[in-house]
Write a protein that binds this DNA or RNA. Structure first.
Length: 133
DNA sequence: TCAATGACACTAA
DNA sequence: CTTAGTGCCATTG
């Protein structure tokens, strides 16, 4: 699979994330068939066009933590704002609480997490047996 | 080619 | 709850 295909696959999955829900880089990587490429999922999102209406903000780390794109960047701040706009509660990252805070907060995956075994943008794997929560 | 990097994940303490 | 360490692998200099 080429980088372009990988990116395209990531975009397809991200597009399936329902409003008010979030998922993790690792899970997306799993859905596209490359569970070890969690880091590259983030790369794909970074490489996408600003014009794209892709809900990249619904993708966070497996811990529910919004990735801090580094001090001086407003990416995390925007992401937190978008998530709150979707009705998602974001804890931490309160501006003004700590100096140099770029807005990195956290989302409760137990409430807003979206982790399907597969997505319906194409074919699915006949996986029926899974652990009960 | 080698070395360093990264919008990560997982386990242990 | 936190910090530290290890694994991961395409991309980049």
């Amino acid at each position: 699979m080429d980088a372009a295909e990988f990116h395209a696959a990531v975009y397809r999955v991200v597009r399936q994330i329902p409003p008010g829900k979030v998922t993790s880089y690792g899970h997306i990587a799993k859905l596209v068939g490359m569970p070890r490429h969690s880091r590259h999922v983030g790369q794909a999102l970074k490489y996408l066009d600003p014009q794209s209406n892709l809900p990249w903000y619904r993708v966070i780390s497996s811990s529910g933590q919004i990735s801090s794109r580094g001090p001086g960047t407003s990416g995390a701040r925007r992401q937190r704002d978008e998530l709150e706009a979707e009705g998602i509660e974001v804890t931490g990252g309160e501006v003004g609480l700590e100096g140099g805070n770029d807005g990195g907060g956290r989302v409760n995956l137990r409430t807003y997490g979206w982790f399907p075994d597969s997505v319906d943008f194409g074919e699915v794997q006949g996986d029926e047996d899974l652990e009960a929560d």
